[in-house]
């Protein structure tokens, strides 16, 4: 059963002769336990795809269905609930909250939703990401790579059924990047989640079950 489905989804920005077709009419579906890579050059429409899937961007036409719910039928409040419960975002700019320590970045989720990781799972996550010693630090005191790893921890902590990552390894060295992909793969397999990773790093596609290529708004499966 598809966790995520895009039916005839299209996105255009602007209008008239300034119109940009960021995503041409696209069908897409993803199942549980799948780690999927979206590759493609800059400006090809990868982020547009990811934000539509995540319910942040409304498509010009077509239907986005997450766990049998058509996002078009929901209001912003309900979409926001789905993002909170079902989706873990790992964003390009590793957006952390400046006045919260690493530990509190995760604790914030305990304030707004239930069913997050257990203490034991959390310890393992810290271990896997190598950020256990950073718990009491603020984002400003972390390196770019450390911040990125905390952002990943934040996305995984809420036990989402769909993980959406936009260039999650961009600010990491090769070894760390491989470790992060390994982690996302384990997470996907062990918890039977669906993970979509947007990247332009071809070396990472080896970890993925499926690979799609985006070119000028056209999504084509490669593997």
């Amino acid at each position: 059963m598809a966790v995520l489905e895009l039916k005839q989804v299209k996105k255009t920005f602007g209008s008239g002769h300034k119109e940009i077709e960021a995503m041409k009419v696209t069908d897409f579906s993803a199942d549980r336990g799948e780690l999927i890579a979206i590759i493609g050059p800059s400006g090809s429409g990868k982020s547009t795809f990811l934000t539509i899937v995540g319910g942040l961007l409304t498509p010009t036409s077509g239907a986005v269905i997450i766990n049998d719910k058509n996002l078009a039928d929901l209001n912003e409040k309900e979409r926001s609930k789905i993002r909170l419960k079902e989706i873990g975002f790992i964003l390009q700019a590793s957006n952390l909250i400046p006045f919260l320590t690493v530990a509190n970045q995760l604790k914030l989720l305990d304030q707004v939703k239930k069913d997050n990781m257990t203490k034991k799972q959390l310890e393992e996550l810290y271990e896997d990401l190598g950020i256990g010693d950073l718990r009491t630090k603020y984002p400003a005191d972390l390196s770019g790579g450390e911040r990125q790893r905390v952002a990943i921890a934040k996305a995984l902590y809420s036990n989402p059924s769909i993980i959406l990552a936009d260039e999650p390894t961009a600010s990491l060295d090769s070894d760390r990047a491989y470790e992060v992909m390994e982690l996302l793969k384990n997470e996907t397999k062990n918890k039977n989640t669906t993970t979509i990773v947007v990247t332009h790093d071809i070396r990472l596609v080896g970890y993925c079950d499926k690979v799609y290529k985006m070119t000028d708004g056209v999504l084509v499966q490669e593997k």
Binding site: K77, S80, I82, R83, F89, N95, P98, V112
Partner: peptide, 16 residues
């Protein structure tokens, strides 16, 4: 603003 935006993207509600 960008910080609130991130939290909203994450699904944290306006009311919270």
């Amino acid at each position: 603003i960008s910080m609130f935006g991130v939290m909203k993207a994450q699904g944290i509600s306006n009311s919270y």
